[in-house]
Write a protein that binds this DNA or RNA. Structure first.
Length: 324
DNA sequence: AATCCGGGGAG
DNA sequence: CTCCCAGGATT
């Protein structure tokens, strides 16, 4: 949960999650949809699937134990070098380093590393340095101390050098570079992509959404709960689609709103078609009752006749051709 | 090596 | 708005 997510944000999710799945066995026995539901709002939903799969793997292949073995952990999907170090240094006092956003900042500043530590030689330097400075015992505590220093004192902006126990030995501070180290990561360039989605909601109302560009749409494919936002007005392609939907006997509105599925409140009877051109490939599917279904899976699923007709039209591509 | 994933917090 | 967050998989 803590990957790329601030601690304060995670806490309530963590507590809910452990209340629902108090043990490794409970998590392993859970349905994936239930795991995802508790993750809803946190983002990076692959983490939830990986965690769930890892729990099952540990129960099946390791008797439900947490092995004192880096190779076993590294073999789990979703577990990288950071997590191996974090888990084993804290659970078994293994002398393994961790590098994340906080320790990265602390190390780069302390040793005056002016290169980009996120790649190339800087990456190697970072992990080697993190390992070099490890104590022989209480490794987990040390790792956490470095992170805590980065989170509370050696902050990204306006570091509190006056409060830092390492200030007298800090190279960046000595050179007045504490604000410019580490160098910011290079910004990714934005690629224009046309994307269209249709959501049919309970009560025969249709929400029409078209979002050009931003790329923020991808989350719909990963896990749609509460993820779809629409602020732009529909364009010509979207309006053509609206006319086609109308011809199918469905009420259409161009009302733009934020879709909050609110799975806990009311049962959702809707279909969502997402269409996306990505790397030349075309993917589509349906979102029904909080589940993501492929066209094949939609077949036996109980939906209304108008919805099924619309779904078939969409799959057959008469709508898709109007969009791209 | 570059890209993608998903929100929210803070300035 | 921008930058950042107890990273990791994929291409």
């Amino acid at each position: 949960m803590l990957q790329q997510t601030q601690v304060a944000t995670v806490v309530p999710y963590f507590e809910r999650f452990l209340a629902a799945f108090p043990t490794l066995q409970a998590l392993a026995a859970a349905d994936e949809q239930d795991v995802l539901r508790l993750w809803e709002g946190l983002g990076y939903y692959r983490r939830a699937r990986d965690l769930h799969r890892a729990a099952r793997q540990l129960v099946l292949e390791h008797n439900g134990d947490l092995p004192d073995d880096p190779d076993v952990w590294r073999g789990l999907s979703g577990v990288g070098r950071y997590m191996v170090g974090a888990i084993l240094s804290q659970a078994f006092d293994r002398r393994l380093p961790i590098v994340e956003a906080n320790s990265l900042r602390v190390l780069c500043r302390f040793f005056g590393q002016t290169g980009d530590p996120r790649r190339g030689p800087g990456q190697r330097w970072l992990w080697e340095t993190a390992e070099d400075i490890l104590p022989r015992t209480r490794v987990g505590e040390f790792n956490q101390a470095v992170m805590e220093l980065g989170a509370l004192v050696c902050t990204p902006a306006k570091p509190r050098c006056g409060k830092c126990p390492l200030a007298s030995m800090c190279v960046a501070r000595k050179q007045g570079l504490q604000e410019t180290i580490p160098v910011p990561p290079t910004k990714p360039k934005v690629i224009e992509v046309r994307e269209v989605a249709v959501v049919i909601r309970h009560g025969e109302r249709v929400l029409l959404v078209q979002r050009p560009g931003t790329g923020r749409w991808a989350r719909m494919w990963e896990f749609p709960h509460g993820a779809l936002r629409a602020k732009e007005a529909p364009d010509d392609a979207a309006l053509r689609l609206a006319r086609e939907l109308t011809s199918l006997g469905v009420e259409v509105t161009d009302e733009m709103e934020t879709v909050r599925h609110g799975v806990t409140h009311h049962r959702i009877t809707m279909i969502c078609l997402g269409a996306r051109k990505r790397n030349g490939a075309f993917r589509s599917g349906f979102y029904v009752d909080s589940r993501w279904l492929t066209p094949a899976e939609l077949g036996p699923y109980p939906i209304s006749a108008p919805q099924r007709l619309l779904a078939r039209r969409l799959v057959e591509g008469s709508v898709q051709r109007n969009l791209f």
